[in-house]
Design a protein around this nucleic acid. Structure first.
Length: 723
RNA sequence: GCGUCUUUAGCUCAGUGGUAGAGCGUUUGCAUGACACGCAAAAGGUCGCAGGUUCGAUCCCUGCAAGACGCACCA
């Protein structure tokens, strides 16, 4: 019976078997939990929706931390008698997966833009389904006690359908509109983005002072002069006051442009020359300036195409010089136009020390081109207000609290959300356009005929939703909103546990869309864990070669050790330094638990549990101390201080129980005094059982394995013991 | 520009208005009847700097410095 304890703890021999016994027991499903069936009164429920890992690859340490923390919470609540539900999921991760797959097909010498839509979608679906299985098996290896029967994928048919419903509902209420406006466009990935997918990089560039007729303008993008439609000055600027409203003729090398001088507050008289060229097609501020002066000046003239190349000939067909620039990449064109301007004597000066920020694609670092596009936008202000109020009123609490401020700041300055993406991997937008009269029909199925002009030429929008538009509705959708039983029983959920890096991408949007759709908050607590970094606090990345694969660590040291290493000393919201050393330390702890259990079990072999022995004063004290420790730890668990709770039980088990209590008790075990021996045995058995319970949420595998050997166990599984 | 965080032992981090804590690491001893993935000891800190509040500050307030980060952005 106890032979297995004769060698060091071997996680490999235990974990798979234990996980299977949990899964087979059915207790991951709250409906099967024994204590939830008994009473007439409504059972206490507790629910967490797992942030669905991307189904395009393997788990990283961030996932391991998240799953570890969520499992800690779930197991603790389950043992506390809650009807506990944890729903696992998988995210199709639209754009992210698209580019992962781009790399796959690039290696094969193919290009996604040449593959028919349906074929490409099917290929990515096959690829994702394969990876999804790997991801799921990894979640199991981490010990997640989630209900696999309720698992949801963001491309399940009901999720797709309900996501489209949300779009239609928002559209009907005037919260979504089709707008032609400038969007962040990545010339490499050939898609537009929302504001969040953009990184800014500080750079030193040249600031060119160019003669525009009688005045001089300063710009970093001389290649856009072909798209200019005005020059703006500050209305209070005395230097230009007399010129406002006048037209100047500007030599832009390939042609002459007549530009009106307009007055606008946006112009800072202190910067450059105080005169700004206005290029509404290629600059966000210029676009807005044009909006304010629509009646006075021409609108956007696009001189850069979607590939980031010059597109001039169609605007200047009679210009021979235009051909010279045609098709050049922006930076090549810039070099050339600068040369030509200098040659023509139009370059006043070049300031090469100008520091500014430029927008980059967050994925490939390609310079973002503001591009004029017709897209679907969500009006954010009406969604943001209730989301702000829910947090202000304390209905949703952030852990740590300071993220509230960051959240408020973002929501108060929010801009409309571009949800159109020009990729195939995602949920297609349920919008159809009449090819004859351009009328839009918002409908899940093909409307066949245009209701406006009767034309039969109706085509669905090729674009798909920003992946966060669907995952933003994740809590209600996974629970079967609007009429599912789980939605009734488990919504609002209790905790949303995720990384602070997706506070805006995901958490804020879940709150906004959740409130909008269900009129209820989607969750009560937001627990934001920090990012896991390497031992030097550097971000882990493939290029730096400092990535630690969590599953390798599970193989080497066991899931329990990995979980402890991730959770101990990791305070919410603070990035943590992580190293293999740390895991080794907790592997050692696992063995310590193993050996201590062995010692206790050996000494319990002839112990009669039927009658409780009379306890010595010292032994009573030990048990009282344990009660206090347990109380302290529960308090820490309830206040989300898992980093402290785990450390406390670690310290108690090793340095109190093993170092002090066992050593003190040894003489009683081998002594002749039968009563004090029985007292000692009882104390050992009690402390071991309680310790294993307290440790279980953190180190579920080894504790379950030991529990199965306890002569005084009361339940079939430790997992459903009473905490 | 607006904002957030950090600064405590060699490293990574907890923490408290009343003479400083953990883990790892280091040093020394130890094959002790659970465990060398171990045991027993030990060394190691003006709690970033300067003021203030207080009987008392590592903790509260102000300023400064260094570092990390978020948001926005002027050509």
């Amino acid at each position: 019976m106890l032979e297995k304890f004769n060698k060091p703890y071997n996680s490999k021999e235990v974990e798979e078997k234990i996980y299977k016994s949990w899964e087979d027991s059915g207790y991951f499903n709250p409906d099967n939990l024994p204590f939830s069936k008994t009473k007439n009164q409504k059972p206490k429920t507790f629910s967490i929706i797992m942030p669905p890992p991307n189904a395009n690859g393997s788990l990283h340490l961030g996932h391991a931390l998240a799953i570890g923390l969520e499992d800690v919470i779930i197991r603790y609540k389950r043992m506390r008698g809650f009807k506990t539900l944890w729903i696992p999921g998988a995210d199709h991760a639209g754009f992210e997966t698209q580019i992962v797959y781009d790399k796959v097909i690039e290696k094969e010498g193919r290009n996604r833009f040449e593959i028919p839509r349906e074929k490409l979608f099917q290929e990515i679906l096959d690829f994702t389904n394969k990876n999804k299985k790997i991801m799921e098996s990894q979640v199991r290896r981490l010990g997640a006690s989630c209900d696999w029967k309720r698992e949801k994928f963001t491309l399940d048919s009901d999720i797709i359908s309900k996501t489209q419903d949300a779009f239609i509902d928002l559209y009907q209420k005037g919260m979504i509109y089709r707008g032609t406006r400038l969007v962040h466009w990545c010339p490499k990935h050939q898609t537009g983005f929302s504001d969040l997918e953009i990184d800014h990089e500080e750079r030193r560039d040249s600031l060119y002072y160019i003669k525009y007729g009688s005045i001089i303008v300063a710009t970093v993008r001389p290649e856009t002069i072909f798209g200019d439609t005005a020059v703006a000055v500050n209305p209070k600027d005395k230097r230009y006051k007399s010129l406002i409203g006048k037209e100047i003729e500007v030599d832009v090398v390939i042609s002459k442009l007549k530009l009106k001088i307009i007055a606008d507050k946006i112009v800072d008289p202190q910067f450059g020359t105080g005169a700004v060229k206005i290029t509404p097609a290629h600059d966000f501020n210029d676009y807005e300036t044009w909006q304010r002066h629509k009646n006075e000046i021409d609108g956007p003239r696009e001189v850069i195409n979607k590939y980031g190349k010059m597109d001039l000939v169609r605007h200047f067909p009679e210009s021979i010089e235009a051909k010279k620039y045609e098709g050049l990449k922006v930076l090549e064109a810039r070099k050339l136009i600068v040369e030509d301007l200098v040659k023509k004597g139009l370059m006043e000066k070049i300031d090469e020390t100008y520091q500014h920020n430029i927008a980059r694609c967050y994925k490939c670092n390609t310079a973002i081109e503001p591009k004029l596009m017709s897209q679907w936008f969500v009006k954010m202000e009406p969604l943001a207000k209730p989301a702000i109020n829910a947090v202000k009123a304390g209905k949703i609490k952030f852990i740590p609290e300071r993220f509230k401020k960051i959240y408020f700041h973002w929501l108060k300055n929010i801009r409309d959300w571009n949800i159109s993406r020009q990729i195939v991997w995602g949920i297609q937008i349920p919008a159809w356009q009449c090819q004859d009269c351009s009328f839009w029909i918002i409908n899940k199925s093909n409307p066949i005929k245009c209701p406006q002009c009767g034309s039969g030429k109706v085509e669905q929008d090729k674009d798909v939703f920003d992946t966060w538009f669907s995952s933003g509705q994740w809590p209600p959708l996974t629970l079967g909103y609007p009429d599912g039983a789980d939605y009734k029983n488990f919504y609002p959920t209790d905790v949303m546990e995720t990384g602070w890096d997706i506070l805006f991408f995901w958490v804020a949007r879940m709150i906004m869309l959740g409130l909008y759709r269900t009129k209820k908050i989607p969750f009560k607590y937001v627990y934001l864990h920090g990012l896991v970094r390497d031992q030097f606090k550097q971000k882990m990345s493939k290029s730096k070669g400092n990535v630690i694969n969590p599953i390798d660590m599970v193989e080497k040291y066991g899931s329990d050790a990995l979980r402890m290493a991730l959770i101990i000393g990791n305070t919410p919201g603070t990035d943590s330094a992580f190293s293999e050393e740390k895991i080794r330390g907790y592997r050692n702890f696992a063995n310590k638990i193993w050996q201590a259990s062995r010692f206790v079990l050996i000494n319990l072999e002839n112990f009669d549990f039927k009658s409780k022995p009379k306890l010595s004063a010292a032994d009573k004290k030990k048990l009282n101390e344990l009660v206090k420790i347990k109380k302290d730890i529960s308090k820490l668990m309830e206040s989300f201080k898992f980093y402290a709770a785990s450390e406390k039980i670690y310290h108690y088990f090793w340095h109190v129980f093993c170092d002090k209590i066992i050593e003190e008790i040894k003489p009683h075990l081998i002594g002749k005094d039968e009563q004090s021996k029985r007292s000692a045995q009882y104390v050992l058995s009690e402390i071991l059982k309680e310790s294993v319970k307290i440790l279980h949420p953190f180190m579920p595998f080894i504790t379950e394995e030991i529990y199965q050997s306890l002569p005084n166990k009361e339940k079939e599984l430790l997992m459903i013991e009473n905490y």
